[in-house]
Design a binder for these strands. Structure first.
Lengths: 340, 340
DNA sequence: CTGAAAGCGCTTACAG
DNA sequence: CTGAAAGCGCTTACAG
């Protein structure tokens, strides 16, 4: 084992100087064919791998991007990372993914590490406040934010949740439903607020005769959905909504469970639509209609924004932060299928 | 912006030498109180962050571990990473996560990058063959494998799938079922083979009068489950199994969907148990019994194995590769609840 | 307790 | 086309 082979080892084995070895790697056409071959053979023989720390130190900058997400176990963020990686690899960057696991301390730690490694830029789906991110940028490292509603101090990318809410409710209205309900919370979440706004807008624009019952839940998870379903099932049939929009799929799945338990059929007695289009929506007991987020594209666009900001910084050009909102997409399935 | 502040900038601002600045960071008690304070103030004022490349280059080694998983979007691997990170952070290491996304080329690329950054060790949930991993180790970087069934050339950690299969089937037998079925595939997957072996063992040991119908599927996903459920539902009631063990939860969820569609009730007409205990198992239309893998612990143990191998290498002690098999755990829910 | 100096493994002008 | 030399930002003995 010992220490790994260095460029000097390669050079002396090939009988050339280290400068020539470096040229074989970085400017191969400055080196004659035979020399090149000898150097390559020496590299293979020693199993030499470039020391990226030394290269970076000398070159003054890295070819690395850091991504910090708040929950890598959420397929949403996993796909966002994949989309970003595709774009960044294609441009010759390495990508480091850090998982803050929804802990502010960890987000800070990761950002600090990234800075110590002199990453060229950072993509951040933040959990904490902006302070660390501002610090990074002040010290010359561009940061692009994901799902950070409204904040024109950073480039950012997210999904248009107002449009998404509108999409879901328009779908229900088009199917002929007039007594609707929207279920979701907490309203501290910008996503929830925006989806509600979109739902209300659709109602106002499309159907003066329709009503929208609003029910709040403490979290966007399955458990409160079950409880709310019980409440809805207990309503008198002629008052009960005929269609329910859940602010995310987990909640919708809880509702589905609750309706089945209460003896209500979906979609015969009640139509149900969720949000996110998680993989499980299609595999639910009744395949769930949903609103899809273009997750990989979010990652790809985040990468593009970062690349643009990095390029501007490199050329010392001024840069204007940009906010991109992507359009959601309706995915109708059996849970809102027209009956008969 | 410009280039980031260097230690020399700090030193001249504080009126000391760079060596003293370094000592403030690495051996603070060799520096007098007032000097220490002056240096710290200068660091804060300049917003200086250590250049990790330079530190590594000089120190000769990094404090970094690389993890490569085959699918970071799978909550299983996300949790494994979290478990490993907890252990590694506690020991003062930074952790880089790479996602090979089930592409061999990407696995290779990530491993190469990690080597260039001179990580101290690697944890790998492999998709491809061993070759890259062997290369890394040959060049002095220890590698621990995850879920790599049987291969004593590496330290490795996984779950005892034979015990898991036994656990699932014993549970069904204890509930009084005598006509069982096991559904899963492809048998190229070691996990599937082992779970089948465990199931057969449980049957042989516990119940001479029980039968086990074996049905193979092309993948461990929901779609083939739906189809198999149709086949099972089509059997004559006195021949049909009364309990089904699906080799993973996605498959079980497909089966559940298929049974409901065919008019069979779970657990009244058929008991059903899956494997993995994904978050969704608890939220399925009928909450699904399953076999739980201690995912975070798998990560933590992988980290521990790696730390041990690294320590041995550092002290030039010999090292024996170790294979750890963790015990799975039964999670009974409604889908196998006794009826009346 | 503090400073001056060597050197980690590379890249990059600059000579020849 | 090739080599000798400087230097990136640190750490680490070694003097004083």
């Amino acid at each position: 084992m010992g220490r790994p082979a260095s460029m000097r080892d390669v050079a002396s084995l090939a009988g050339v100087s280290v400068g020539t070895v470096s040229n074989v790697l970085n400017a191969p056409d400055r080196v004659s064919g035979p020399t090149r071959e000898r150097v390559r053979a020496a590299i293979d023989q020693l199993g030499w791998t470039r020391n990226e720390s030394a290269r970076q130190l000398r070159a003054g900058q890295s070819q690395t991007i850091g991504i910090v997400v708040m929950d890598i176990g959420n397929p949403y963020f996993a796909d966002v990372c994949l989309g970003a990686e595709d774009t960044l690899y294609a441009e010759g960057y390495s990508v480091y993914i850090g998982n803050s696991d929804q802990q502010e301390g960890r987000e800070e730690l990761l950002l600090r590490h990234f800075e110590q490694y002199r990453v060229r830029g950072v993509i951040l789906a933040p959990i904490g406040d902006d302070e660390c991110a501002r610090g990074l940028r002040r010290r010359g490292i561009p940061v692009v934010m994901i799902d950070r509603s409204h904040d024109n101090d950073f480039c950012q990318i997210g999904l248009d949740d107002i449009a998404g809410g509108r999409l879901a409710v328009s779908h229900l209205l088009q199917l002929g439903h007039r007594r609707l309900a929207i279920v979701g919370g907490p309203s501290a979440l910008a996503q929830v607020r925006d989806r509600r706004v979109g739902a209300a807008t659709a109602l106002r624009q499309a159907a003066a005769d329709a009503t929208l019952l609003s029910i709040s839940t403490p979290t966007l998870t399955a458990a409160p959905g079950v409880a709310v379903a019980g409440q809805i099932a207990a309503m008198a049939p002629h008052e009960r909504p005929t269609a329910v929009f859940a602010c995310n799929d987990l909640l919708a799945i809880g509702l589905l469970q609750g309706f089945v338990a209460a003896g209500l059929r979906v979609p015969e007695d009640l139509a149900l639509i969720g949000y996110d289009d998680i993989a499980f929506a299609a595999a639910a007991a009744v395949p769930l209609s949903s609103v899809r987020q273009p997750r990989r594209e979010i990652g790809a666009r985040a990468a593009a924004l970062l690349l643009a900001e990095m390029a501007a910084a490199a050329d010392n050009r001024p840069h204007r932060h940009e906010s991109v909102l992507l359009a959601p997409e309706l995915v109708p399935r059996q849970s809102t299928a027209p009956v008969r």
